[in-house]
Computed example of a mutant assay.
Amino acid sequence: MSGMPRYIYEEEHEMFRNSVRKFLETEAEPYHAQWEKDGHVDRQLWIKAGEQGFLSPTVAEEYGGVGADFRYNAIVDEEVGRSGLTGIGWGLHSDIAVPYIISYGNEAQKEKYLPKCVSGEIITAIAMTEPGAGSDLQGIKTTAIKDGDDYIINGSKTFITNGQLSDLVIVVAKTDPSAGAKGVSLFLVESGTPGFSKGANLEKVGMKAQDTSELFFQDVRVSKDQLLGEEGMGFVYLMQDLPQERLSVAINAVANAKSVLEQTVEYVKERKAFGKSIATFQNTQFKLAEMDTDITVAEAYMDRCLELHINKQFDSVAAAKCKLMATDLQCKVIDECLQLHGGYGFMWEYPVARAFADSRVQRIYAGTNEIMKLIIGRELVK
């Protein structure tokens, strides 16, 4: 495929990329079909990834990490997206959940949890979404009411990525239900805590190897030491960290679209119709040209967003734009690629079929694309 030189990454980053790619080829690809049947990846994958330094590379050396910048996270996101091996929930862990502990955890929390997050001994999840509150984080009903030096958590969450395998969950709850956004706090809740239970692994349209769960909290007692950051600051923390989450989703989306297009280019060269390779048809060439152009532009934009993020200049509006653009493009490209595969594109054995099913949720989670438009639009007319 054509494209532009990428200057955001240096030689050391490409060496890291090669190691991630080889790891996925040997440790994930041969087993992925079984993981789709199981509804989750093998836990040993996390331990092996931790041994290779693929988990939470931004964690400081004093807590067992390497203190790298977010480019290493981005490479992992790209390689997982490129591979099409859905269900490997490292992005949720490394890009979304663990950074809350890095940013807002106290020293005791960091010492207790971060080394095991890096090693893969602890798998994290973040429990925001509720049955009646998706993108509306202010509308959550889960409560954490103070009781002496403890908090009592009651409520339920749904669509929680890594929910089944998780050892540590960041729970978003209302410590003051009457205070709106100012009454939201975050708590670190360990699996096995009395009253905390996990529902069945949810059956989804796509992302079959990704465990996704309902979580239930019935009079779950946690000490004040499990409060993450300050009481009442949870909504602020979520707003501050959502841009990185959306960037992570967008990076994965563009890499996945690019990979599916590369596969499709090879397929149309081999597929025959009316006695000729369909790669020789003008319509095929036009479709490929349009997609290649769109992906080239998107990749350049994503690199710029990544640069802004590293330099702490990436704001919520820029994040909304990149998430909206990248996930819309991903779905558009994969739909076009499936069409070029003809009937075979609708067969589950073909990667494009899996990509078609897996990609659709990208426009929903991390804030729906309608919410992204709202964020952008409000900034334009304020």
Rank of each mutant, 00 (worst) to 15 (best):
G195L: 03
M207D: 09
K224P: 04
N201W: 01
T193M: 05
G206D: 08
L228R: 02
T212A: 06
N201I: 12
Q210T: 02
M207F: 05
E203G: 15
D225Y: 11
N201F: 03
D211G: 07
G206L: 07
Q218F: 08
A209E: 01
V222D: 04
D225S: 15
L215M: 13
A209N: 02
Q218D: 14
G195Q: 01
F217E: 05
F196A: 09
S223Q: 09
V205M: 14
L227S: 12
L215Y: 01
D225Q: 15
S223K: 13
F196R: 05
Q218W: 07
K208A: 14
N201K: 12
D211M: 02
K198Q: 12
E203N: 13
S213I: 07
F196I: 09
G206C: 11
T193W: 03
L228W: 02
D219H: 13
E203A: 15
F217I: 13
K208T: 07
E214V: 04
A209Y: 00
R221D: 06
E203I: 12
A200H: 06
D211W: 00
G206K: 07
T212K: 03
V205R: 11
L202Q: 08
A200M: 07
F216D: 06
G199K: 02
D225M: 12
S223M: 09
K208L: 13
L227K: 10
Q218M: 14
A209H: 01
